[in-house]
């Protein structure tokens, strides 16, 4: 008797399981479609979750990352002598450059003073540490330990000391996500200095993103500097991204200026776009005023 009821119970259980599985599959697909259609909203959900989970991440990932860093440092100790020599040589050439830069800066300042140039207010920056990274083939991005509470806004440029690293996409209260230039979904408008051509920097999950939509590739030489153009008003203009390299198949790619190999701290530029004028001034009163009741 008990066996029969057990059998019934199992078949009922099996049916509910199947319904549950169906519901879960539906939920997954719906979430995916939602993410594809209305990414910002799902990303906000993701950041909320990251906000909740980051404290626990900080406890585990920080020691692990430090440990690997120590290992890497130890490896570099082994060849400390060669490095020292190398650094000394570099320092020598650098000091020459430093002198040149100082002179140029002074000259620039003098010329600017003569011209009465109005400079845009200097961008401030916030520094964050990469706490977690996306560990799959589907994206290249990192989770920073600074967020809206620290003044990070969506779309800000993220730099290391040398060049552009990526863009903030998704801000939580204490976390934010930086999507690297190498990410497969990253598109950044750039200018190739030298020929002054505009192009789009297209990430494809490789270490050297593609320089796409160049008008005249013949005029681009390897080694040309590539900076952001500021088109679209998301990223500030004139941030160094890297140098042009030509791949074996003739594609133009970018050698990133930012040191992606040892990326840990990232600066987030708090860039406020210049106010643009897109309507006439407020000298002429709005139409409704004339028809509305006169203000007391």
């Amino acid at each position: 008797m008990a066996y029969v009821s057990g059998q019934k119970q199992t078949s009922l259980w099996r049916t509910t399981r199947q319904i549950l599985l169906g519901v879960i599959v539906l939920v997954c697909l719906t979430l995916f479609v939602l993410w594809r259609i209305d990414s910002p909203r799902v990303e906000r959900l993701r950041m909320t979750l990251a906000d909740a989970a980051l404290p626990s991440m900080e406890w585990t990932t920080r020691p692990a990352a430090r440990f690997t860093n120590m290992l890497q440092d130890f490896q570099s100790y082994v060849r400390v002598y060669e490095q020292n020599e190398e650094l000394r040589r570099e320092l020598q050439t650098m000091s020459g450059w430093r002198e040149a830069a100082l002179q140029l800066e002074q000259r620039n300042a003098r010329l600017r003073a003569l011209n009465n140039v109005q400079l845009s207010p200097r961008a401030t920056f916030i520094t964050g540490e990469i706490m977690a990274d996306s560990a799959g083939p589907f994206s290249r991005s990192g989770l920073l330990n600074v967020g809206a509470g620290n003044g990070v806004t969506d779309g800000s440029a993220a730099l290391d000391g040398l060049g552009l690293v990526g863009r903030i996409s998704g801000v939580g209260e204490e976390t934010s996500r930086v999507i690297f230039l190498t990410d497969i979904n990253s598109r950044v408008p750039v200018v190739i200095q030298g020929s002054g051509q505009r192009a789009i920097l297209t990430g494809d999950n490789t270490d050297a993103p593609l320089i796409d939509f160049v008008e005249d590739t013949a005029r681009v030489r390897p080694g040309d500097r590539v900076v952001t153009s500021g088109d679209g008003g998301v990223l500030p203009a004139d941030v160094l991204a890297g140098q042009v390299i030509v791949a074996a198949n003739g594609q133009l790619r970018l050698r990133l200026a930012a040191d992606y190999d040892r990326l840990r701290f990232v600066r987030i530029l708090n860039h406020r776009p210049q106010p643009t004028i897109h309507r006439p001034g407020g000298l002429i009163a709005d139409e409704p005023f004339f028809f509305a009741e006169e203000p007391e």
Partner: peptide
């Protein structure tokens, strides 16, 4: 999940 999220080489894995 945490193990996967450790940023060993976040820029150039």
């Amino acid at each position: 999940i945490l193990l996967s999220a450790i940023p060993l080489q976040p820029g150039a894995p």
